[in-house]
Design a protein around this nucleic acid. Structure first.
Lengths: 203, 203, 203, 203
DNA sequence: TATGAATGAGGATTCATTCAT
DNA sequence: CATGAATGAATCCTCATTCAT
């Protein structure tokens, strides 16, 4: 018997659930958000959700994976447009700066941060986090820095790995404060300041 | 007739509960940690906990208040030892750098971060967060920067409020990543890098 | 897609829960009866009970509503068989007299009485009580009395509202004493005596 | 060693507790009223309450006993002022009629009714109820009726016990409805109507 | 696959009662 | 005797997950 529905149908349904789950998790937090919240928000029945994901936690993990992967892939692709290291760094700051005022992004930051906390308490997930920091985040910055050093754009003697860690810590720290304080936090100015500071330190 | 127990006794008991709650909340997260966990960990009976706090959330809030207030007060007091703005900033970075490897501090960071998320979803608590950011955090840095400008140590034209925001976002961002990744994260080096970067940008 | 279960199924389930709750409430009282008592008695799971009623109190209120409404409706319908006012009054006394020895009815009286106490302490429920006294109880008697006055059967000059109040107070008072003292209370004789007394006073 | 405090002191303290408990029980119901409510209302410490009564239920029982005994004794004494049976009955109705608007009395009725329910569920207390109905209540009315029959005032052929039961059922029924509906219930008129009806039936 | 009713373990909170001071 | 802190059993309710239709 052939599959009753296409793989593509299943993939779309999964995405749909994930999208609604993100909003629910952002609104109430992972623990406080219930499957019923997702049901209400997505209008997909509880039974259906459980045919696509075997637990609430699995939705959470899938959510994080897909967001990270897709956003990083897009970022890397866009970076190819620039061939100057400083411009690349500058571009990444600008990408985050542009997120100002976007609810979806604030939601993502909240869920992302909470997932970090969650994952840091589970050995398996923690490893995933560590791997991902390496694969998706640090390597991007390290590559740019090393490239910049070759061309002489960057003269900083600092350890590229440390710089990469600091880079993402700043992005996360600023984004997190913004997602919590919202309009009370001068997000764009702070990102701009961070950009100047970080780039100055590289030169 | 004298009171059955002194105010001081009660204050100590409250602190004791808070201390144990911090560990439990850090270990499992606020939602996942149960009152029974605190009972087991503290060996204080459930009923007793509820005579000192009227809900789990109240413990959480008290925990945050006391940690913030006492640590900030200590910090401010110690800052008076330095009369140079750059030295003051440098000292604060050093204070955080010294926390490396201290489990208690990593616990505090996790609980602190989670509380931020929690509070950002509750109008009343969110206001508390905003007020506290102003009163306890930003003002400290703004004062130092303005002092430094007067003495000519600091020449940066940037908005002191924005700088203060960035400062704490970096501290939080770095601390958070560290608390999640632990020994995988080169905390001391990152803090050192951040210190140099931030101070360079002020001059 | 058709609903998984019919409305009728749900209505029956609700009734079932209510029926078991009545017995539990009668046996121990509303407060003392636990949800687990209802679970044990009905063999319906706790979760299920909570999908039909959102709290123990809601079961209580539903219980009172359905009992009152259905029993009054039946009573009114049966009254149409008589076209003589005195016979109607006599019939109502007889209906209550017939309840002698029926455990279900004694249960209902107890729960009913306790609900009165409960409701008298809650502004919203108290209003419901007042409205119901008017709509379901007093009006029935007042209508009969006024009808009887027109036909000349009833010559009493007393206020029909006061007579209606007295009528129900007697029914309740007698029923309540009976439900508490059971076989120690000569219920049928007392109801009979009350009937004669009340009817004599109307003529 | 002689007793530290006099019996009279103890008796007064007990009464005091009982008086406050009555109000608390009336306000919230026996189960819902907590010992802490009584503590707050009476300003007597929890420990103290437990030196005078060994449980919450004991307060309840003591409350009922003292109220019943003292009020009945007073009633019987006052009845001696009348030497006519009808006047005596009339007087009792008047005593209850006079209670209109007295909060204390409405409180007593509520607590009394709830105690009935409570006691009817406990074999020991139920017996106490049955005995008391006989000793304190029915006998009073039966005596009057039998006296009235002797003097020829009363000609009713009805069983005096049944009449006595009906008498108290009416008093209770009317009182209870009044205590629940308060100003919505025309208490005085209903009592007056009941009095006329009952007396008419005796003659 | 889709649905939503059923399940019951789990968790926050309450409160009568005890007992050290 | 008086006090009120300590105790933990008891209870309501939630919610992730399962499964019959």
């Amino acid at each position: 018997m052939p599959p009753v529905v296409s793989d593509e149908y299943r993939a779309r349904k999964r995405s749909e659930i994930i999208e609604h789950a993100l909003i629910c998790f952002a609104e109430k937090g992972f623990q406080a958000a219930t499957i019923d919240d997702i049901v209400k928000h997505s209008k997909i029945s509880k039974g259906s959700i459980y045919t696509y994901f075997k637990s609430k936690e699995e939705i959470y993990i899938a959510l994080m994976n897909e967001k990270t992967v897709s956003s990083t892939e897009r970022l890397i692709e866009e970076l190819t447009k620039y061939d100057n290291a400083i411009e690349k760094i500058s571009f990444i700051f600008d990408v985050y700066k542009m997120q100002a005022g976007r609810g979806t992004w604030m939601d993502t930051v909240k869920v992302h941060t909470e997932f970090y906390l969650h994952a840091s308490r589970d050995p398996e997930l923690r490893q995933l986090l560590i791997d991902r920091a390496e694969t998706y985040y640090n390597s991007v910055i390290i590559n740019i820095i090393e490239e910049g050093k070759k061309t002489g754009e960057i003269t900083s003697k600092s350890n590229p790995d440390v710089l990469a860690r600091l880079f993402w810590s700043i992005i996360n720290g600023v984004g997190f404060q913004y997602s919590a304080l919202e309009e009370q936090y001068p997000y764009e100015e702070v990102i701009e300041e961070a950009k100047e500071m970080f780039i100055a330190s590289l030169k």
